[in-house]
Simulated scan of single mutants.
Amino acid sequence: MVKELVRKHQDLEIYKMAFDMAMQIFELSKKFPVEERYSLTDQIRRSSRSVCANLAEAWRKRRYEAAFIAKLNDCVRGACRRQAEAAETQTWIEFSVKCGYLDVEIGRELYGTYNQILSGLVNMINHSESWLMKH
């Protein structure tokens, strides 16, 4: 199998997966009750989008390993003591299922995909040297 050349963050499979999940969550959350607009709906959309935004920023910081890893950690753990963005999204998925806004099976699929995203991010952190820009 030939590894495809990654020229920009949008070429990363993990980014594509996270972006697709953010868009799927956006579409699904359109059906949430109006009273959730400023709470659950905003939170799940924000955290799912933040994974993509932090990954894009990490990609731009590949010249310096510490900066690259720090930004990837924001995707996984979150900054300023927030929960991990991907893990936070999983929590909002759980709430959405328990509140009856998402079907259990859809919730399981979304949650499982976020496990794959978390795994991919951790793998990038653990093998950061292979992603860095050459000086």
Rank of each mutant, 00 (worst) to 15 (best):
K3Q: 15
E4P: 01
V6T: 15
K8G: 00
H9E: 11
Q10M: 08
L12Y: 05
L12R: 06
I14G: 04
K16D: 05
D20P: 00
A22C: 02
M23I: 07
Q24R: 15
I25N: 03
I25P: 01
I25R: 05
L28C: 04
S29N: 11
S29Q: 11
F32K: 05
P33S: 05
P33L: 01
V34N: 08
E35L: 04
E35R: 09
R37G: 02
Y38Q: 06
S39G: 13
S39I: 06
D42N: 14
I44W: 08
I44A: 06
R45A: 08
S47G: 04
S48T: 12
R49K: 14
S50H: 06
V51C: 03
A53F: 09
N54E: 08
N54K: 10
N54D: 11
A56S: 14
A56T: 09
A56Y: 11
R60T: 13
K61T: 01
R62S: 03
Y64I: 09
E65Q: 14
A67G: 00
I69W: 01
D74W: 09
D74Q: 08
C75F: 09
V76W: 05
G78W: 00
A79V: 08
R82Q: 10
A84N: 08
E85F: 14
A86N: 12
A87E: 10
E88R: 07
T91V: 09
I93V: 15
F95E: 07
F95P: 00
S96H: 07
S96E: 06
S96V: 07
V97S: 02
V97N: 01
K98V: 08
G100N: 05
Y101C: 04
L102E: 06
L102H: 09
D103L: 02
V104Q: 14
E105N: 14
I106Q: 12
I106D: 01
Y111G: 04
Y111R: 09
Y114A: 03
Q116W: 08
I117G: 08
I117H: 07
I117E: 07
L118M: 11
L118G: 11
S119K: 15
G120T: 12
M124I: 14
N126L: 13
H127K: 13
H127V: 04
S130Y: 10
W131T: 03
L132G: 04
K134A: 10
H135E: 08
